[in-house]
């Protein structure tokens, strides 16, 4: 059963730009016919190899 007030989570590929994320959220907003807002953005945790390369 869907929680009535719970947010919807969208998973975007890492590297997707905020502009493109806004495009997709705007698309959903257009279907709903109401404004949507972003509650939270969580980036993936970098793995050790990425941290090493970043120095």
């Amino acid at each position: 059963m869907t929680e009535i007030s719970s947010p919807i989570t969208i998973k975007f590929e890492e590297g997707t730009t905020p502009e493109r994320m806004a495009d997709f959220i705007g698309f959903l907003s257009g279907i709903l016919g109401e404004d949507l807002f972003v509650e939270q953005v969580v980036d993936p945790t970098p793995d050790s190899e990425e941290i090493r390369k970043a120095g």
Binding site: I8, T9, E34, P44
Partner: peptide, 22 residues
Amino acid sequence: NKKFISVKISPKGEVVTSGKWS
């Protein structure tokens, strides 16, 4: 090896309480 950015979205206003969101 893809990773994902997680974005939580909610409606503004009274959409939730009106049942429209559901």
